[in-house]
């Protein structure tokens, strides 16, 4: 028996709702959470509050990863010591996005990027945003960047303690 040429499933159109032909029930779910940062990310966030990006060193795998973690997912040994990395990095990849998380349009785009952090092993980076005032056309994979921190007083131990990453001018901060 072949696939039927007429298949079930009824597509709705806007007038189905305006005419009242189709009944819809609307609701909103409210749930609140308090996520404990945990042992490793707790240290990472405390580091950010001090203006330092921390990673974890796995001596067995000879690898420094970021952010801090309590165990190495590869060799499965416990990782005890966090190590300070630099607050500079290299753009591994980026996007120029005109939509927010809930699909609202943005006139001025955001530039999310994966930034490989200097001091961590090659290829190890974090998700963050690039300076929104950068001309998107000048952003390139491989571009060097540095963290732009919030003022000491307004830092709260959050990933947003780094405002964004800005282009590292050649010869500066090296």
């Amino acid at each position: 028996m072949s696939q039927p040429s007429q298949t079930p499933g009824t597509a709705l159109r806007a007038e189905d709702f305006s005419s009242g032909r189709v009944i819809t029930v609307r609701d909103r779910l409210f749930t609140r959470y308090a996520w404990d940062a945990g042992v490793a990310i707790g240290r990472y966030l405390a580091g950010l509050r001090r203006g330092v990006i921390l990673g974890s060193r796995c001596p067995k795998c000879d690898r420094t990863v970021v952010p801090v973690r309590s165990f190495c997912e590869r060799c499965f040994s416990a990782l005890v010591d966090e190590v300070p990395l630099t607050d500079r990095g290299t753009v591994n990849t980026f996007s120029v996005t005109y939509v927010t998380w809930d699909m609202k349009k943005l006139e001025k785009p955001l530039i999310p990027a994966v930034i490989e952090i200097e001091g961590a092993s090659k290829g190890c980076g974090i998700l963050h945003l690039l300076d929104p005032d950068l001309d998107p056309k000048t952003v390139k994979v491989g571009m060097r960047v540095r963290a732009v921190w919030k003022g000491t007083r307004s830092r709260e131990g959050a990933i947003t303690d780094i405002r964004h990453f800005a282009r590292l001018e050649e010869g500066a901060g090296a």
């Binding site: 990310i41 990849t93 998380w101 999310p112 990027a113 998700l127 994979v141 990933i159």
Partner: peptide, 28 residues
């Protein structure tokens, strides 16, 4: 709904969605 697949501490505060991260992968 996809905001809830990201790490709640290190990623969600940046407001990511799937278009972003697939754009990152596509660019790479």
């Amino acid at each position: 709904a996809f905001i809830s697949i990201f790490d709640h501490t290190t990623e969600r505060p940046l407001g990511p969605n799937l278009l972003w991260i697939f754009a990152l992968e596509m660019n790479r």
